[in-house]
């Protein structure tokens, strides 16, 4: 009799285990929830009372120094709003676009928020936010240029900002071998040089280009072809997931309540953000 019972015991235990497995497995498939890891990055910012934003000060309209010497721009406005909602102060810091990642990683800045394009390399090295704007890399020529399209580019001098995604794009394209490339620190300088004739064509973000051209009294033309389609995102340190998530959350809320759209309208005339 006891043998039978012990046999039953075994079977019963097995069944119990299996049933538990079944039930648990059944439950598990529905939701996948992201658990925000508490890595302290957000708390650090909150404690310090400020978010240090790193930017290339010559990148209108995203973030730039205006005539008054203030740092303004779409990104800046959004960042300001985010910091308001976080309850901290926005501190902007001009950085060398070339060394932006180093600055981020050594703690000089908490984020790179300046119309930074998403590239695979940047995705690896940083914790990027959700994309918030589209962008193309376009060619700009002087008004009196006889370059009508890309086919006219061979043998010409192409100017590009150093450290920009444009540079990277250029270097990976065929144009690189055919043409001379000139690097510049910032886009404003680049435009000046273009105007002066130092370079024949400038490869720039469309966002910057159209903005700048519109405001310039000089005549420039945009070539019909664009080199690349990009998306802008904010860059955080790789481990600052909590901070990044919180910022994205706020931006999403800003989209919901329309704040984001308003800022976009302010700078672009219309809501061109692609935040979900």
């Amino acid at each position: 009799m006891s043998f039978i019972l012990s046999g039953f015991k075994r079977i019963a235990a097995l069944m119990l285990a299996t049933s538990l497995v079944f039930m648990l497995s059944g439950c598990g498939t529905d939701e996948s929830s992201d658990q925000t890891l508490s890595d302290g990055s957000l708390q650090k910012v909150l404690d310090s009372g400020q978010l240090v934003l790193g930017l290339d000060e010559g990148f209108p309209p995203m973030g730039f120094k205006d005539d008054n010497g203030d740092i303004v721009g779409f990104d800046i406005d959004v960042a300001k709003e985010v910091c308001n909602r976080l309850g901290v102060k926005l501190v902007t810091k001009g950085i060398d676009w070339d060394t932006k990642e180093e600055c981020l990683n050594n703690g000089e800045i908490d984020c790179i928020w300046n119309g930074m394009s998403i590239t695979p390399e940047r995705e690896n090295n940083m914790n990027l936010s959700e994309p918030y704007m589209k962008n193309e890399l376009i060619f700009v020529v002087r008004g009196n240029s006889d370059i009508k399209g890309i086919r006219d580019l061979s043998g010409k001098t192409i100017g590009v900002q150093s450290g920009a995604s444009a540079q990277e794009a250029l270097e990976t394209s065929d144009l690189y071998s055919d043409n001379k490339v000139e690097l510049f620190d910032d886009n404003i300088t680049l435009f000046e040089q273009l105007e002066k004739g130092k370079v024949d064509v400038a490869l720039v973000d469309s966002v910057v280009a159209y903005y700048s051209i519109f405001l310039s009294d000089k005549q420039f033309f945009v070539l019909p072809e664009s080199l690349d389609e990009e998306q802008y995102a904010i860059g955080f340190r790789k481990n600052d997931k909590e901070l990044r998530d919180r910022v994205c959350e706020i931006i999403s809320q800003m989209k919901t309540d329309g704040t984001l759209g308003d800022i976009s309208k302010k700078w672009f005339g219309s809501d061109i953000t692609i935040v979900k």
Partner: peptide, 20 residues
């Protein structure tokens, strides 16, 4: 106990099936 365990097993199976 046996009763319970067997029932649990079967219900577990059913739940899993349902989930599926």
């Amino acid at each position: 106990l046996l009763f319970l365990m067997v029932i649990l097993f079967f219900e577990g199976v059913i739940i899993a099936y349902y989930k599926m």
